[in-house]
Design a protein around this nucleic acid. Structure first.
Lengths: 246, 246
DNA sequence: CGATCCTTTGAGCGAACTCAACTCGGGTGG
DNA sequence: CCACCCGAGTTGAGTTCGCTCAAAGGATCG
């Protein structure tokens, strides 16, 4: 029996491409191994040579690097349906680490199974590639974010992005959504100190843009939040319906 | 007669993968159209839907975005042999722009020709993918750079990276190399003001790490420069020989 | 031989940082 | 069941890194 987690993957891929009935079925036949993660648990680490991919089913993951001076930089957050280490199919050594943000569930898929699937369905391979390229576009936007926006906008931008990513896979409730990212992690992702993140979040709240509480975020005024973030959704390369909503 | 520019492409691909005799020959048969660029000329812009790829032959290119407030962020520099917009084969709309840094030469290759080449030689397709994935790894490292390093280290890191990229394709002369990037562009790439770049560069010079003059850079003490940059070359995914040198 | 772009220098300012302490809520073990 | 503890959030005060504004030297090139 196909695991339900694979539906998440299908929904994700369909947020960026079109899949045929046949392709959907083949995805559902992938053999997966479920794994529960506590908060802040690593899945793969810098230097590893993984032989399987990791499909996120529940919770959030993050990609990060440590500098020799001890600072951690988060370079990406992932939401259910994504396969953050799909690139390990082509590049052997990990140059960064992948860990859970809060408690999460992942489905592990052997590289061999992935390769067979892609070989039998080049269209699915294209979908993965498209997704990987979008990931790269997101990295680029993050360079802009940490490099050129002020604290207030950086955080606003991060929230806009996560909202749209979640919305694309149907995990939002109006403008409210799960948000297990602590302020200290927001800091590691935006290049700001925890203290300054806190003050900026308070400013965003005071301006009536967001409600941010333990584990959950609600956007009070999406238009003004996007404006504050100088947010342009082009880089997410969403398909028609999703794009309009952005 | 194959254009000499294609040898550059081969050298580049061979810095990250292995090519067969046959594959090399097919690359040399690609039809290219040469184009000369003045400094700061755009090749493709945000919103474009290119129908050709751009192989850099001479000079430097950069990838950048403009924010509504007028600031420009540079997200990557490219050196001869690279095809910065190879991803346009799979993603239709550009979400950023590509322009020359100094006067440069590029070879334009139609998407159709690229697709045929890749179709006939899946190994070359893999090489392009591998290269694209390395590009993504470089974006991630740039997030770390602008997000977590201080000005002095950021600039040192940028210089280490460009040095190794040039070295991988044989465009260095000892530790000296072409460097057409102005201080104001270093600023746009590191998220620093021109003035502060200048002062940091002076500090790097004073510490005896680099000699940076109009159009050329020489590294005086690579070890100490790497240390100052907290530079770890893993993310460049160079092959054996290159890696050792790093 | 101006015109222009790049680099350099000075001075004052401000965004974000560090350090330190205190609050709050949830979980755990005695 | 309560006491404690720990992680997350919050607040204050002083500091610093990097910014802005402004102007003055070099290159380089029609």
């Amino acid at each position: 029996m196909p695991h339900q987690s694979l539906n998440q993957l299908i929904r994700k891929l369909e947020s960026v491409t079109t899949l045929s009935e046949d392709e959907r079925n083949s995805i559902l036949e992938l053999p997966v191994k479920l794994r529960d993660l506590r908060a802040d648990e690593d899945i793969v680490r810098e230097g590893d040579r993984p032989s399987q991919c990791c499909l996120l089913v529940e919770g959030f993951l993050c990609r990060y690097k440590m500098l020799p001076n001890g600072t951690r930089t988060i370079m990406a957050f992932y939401v259910p349906g994504e396969i953050p280490d799909a690139h390990s199919l082509h590049i052997d050594v990990m140059d960064d680490s992948l860990g859970s943000v809060g408690p999460s569930k992942v489905a592990l898929i052997a590289h061999d199974a992935m390769k067979q699937l892609i070989h039998r369905h080049p269209g699915i391979g294209d979908a993965f590639w498209r997704d990987t390229l979008i990931d790269a576009a997101i990295f680029r936007e993050w360079i802009v974010n940490v490099g050129s926006r002020e604290a207030y906008s950086r955080i606003a931008h991060l929230i806009c992005e996560i909202f749209l990513k979640l919305k694309a896979v149907g995990l939002t409730n109006g403008t409210s959504f799960e948000f297990p990212i602590t302020q200290s992690k927001i800091g590691e992702a935006t290049g700001l100190s925890t203290v300054h993140v806190n003050r900026s979040v308070q400013a965003l709240r005071a301006d009536g843009l967001i409600v941010l509480e333990r584990g959950r975020c609600t956007i009070s005024d999406l238009e003004r939040l996007k404006e504050a973030a100088m947010f342009d959704p082009t880089y997410l390369h969403l398909r028609g319906e999703q794009r309009v909503a952005a």
